[in-house]
């Protein structure tokens, strides 16, 4: 019996490792290309560069004006994710648990834009922002980003909220808690995994977003990091080494956020709180 278990464990490890290698490979390629000179990228196909060429990174940082773009991306991502988590969870809780008129219709309306991918909605959005005086402003872009993540966020959180047993709420009401206290003290902590998932999801989405930022913003000092990367992909010439260096720099923060958020997904809910 124990050898079967060991066999199973071994094959599990092999599977895990194989998939891990396949996942890592492109990242390693990107990193190794970022350390090669332009000429070497096309001639040397191996993962290990012949000469380590750190210049790509310094070039990328300066040429791509990464300092300011980085800061902007941080602002947009942080405010965007915060906005989605707060406004989204409030709404999701309301739709899941509270008496609200037209609940189902609201939910339906939230879902529809997820399903119908209309092209060119950014044009009326652009005109709208202009009328509101929000063009070329950071707030304007952040509002768009928050808005973009609401539908999916509410969808996910509502499902998680609905799985929480009503007894918990009822117990709290008997203890005299208000709706807000229930929301803040009981419900939110219970959906931490969903919140963490959404945080990561939206961090990646906003961090990598490009089209809306370029259309709504004009002042180069407000541009996010993706705009910096655009510099390396010229109309005709692509500086692959610098591009890879830029992409590596750009990918790093998201990776860090993920590492931080991981533990919230893994910390389970105390046993007995769910279907106990």
């Amino acid at each position: 019996m124990s050898s079967k278990v060991e066999e199973a464990k071994l094959s599990s490890y092999l599977i895990l490792l194989a998939i891990a290698i396949i996942c890592l490979f492109p990242l390693l390629w990107m990193l190794s290309s970022s350390l090669k000179s332009q000429a070497e990228i096309f001639t040397n196909m191996s993962l290990i560069p012949k000469r380590i060429f750190f210049k790509n990174y310094s070039d990328a940082w300066v040429k791509g004006k990464f300092a300011i773009y980085f800061l902007n991306s941080l602002i947009y991502t942080f405010c965007g994710v915060l906005g989605i988590l707060t406004i989204g969870s409030l709404c999701a809780y309301g739709l899941a648990r509270l008496k609200i008129p037209f609940k189902d219709i609201i939910f339906l309306i939230l879902i529809i834009p997820l399903i119908v991918p209309l092209p060119g909605t950014f044009v009326p959005l652009y005109v709208l922002l202009k009328r509101l005086g929000l063009l070329d402003t950071r707030i304007g872009l952040i509002l768009c980003y928050i808005n973009g993540g609401l539908a999916f966020g509410i969808f996910l959180l509502k499902s998680f909220f609905e799985e929480i047993p009503k007894e918990l709420e009822e117990a709290a009401i008997i203890d005299g808690a208000t709706k807000w206290q229930i929301y803040f003290r009981i419900m939110l902590p219970l959906v931490k995994p969903a919140l963490a998932t959404l945080a990561i999801f939206n961090t990646v989405a906003i961090w990598n977003e490009f089209l809306l930022a370029l259309i709504i913003l004009q002042n180069p000092l407000k541009m996010p990091i993706q705009r910096g990367l655009m510099v390396f992909q010229g109309t005709h010439i692509t500086e692959y080494g610098q591009l890879m260096a830029g992409l590596s720099i750009a990918t790093l923060p998201v990776l860090i956020i993920y590492l931080l958020m991981q533990k919230y997904i893994i910390k389970g809910i105390t046993a007995g709180a769910l279907k106990g």
Binding site: G120, Y126, L214
Partner: peptide, 10 residues
């Protein structure tokens, strides 16, 4: 696309 949006927005 930026040009087209700007054209619409004047």
């Amino acid at each position: 696309e930026k040009v087209r949006a700007a054209a619409q927005g004047g």
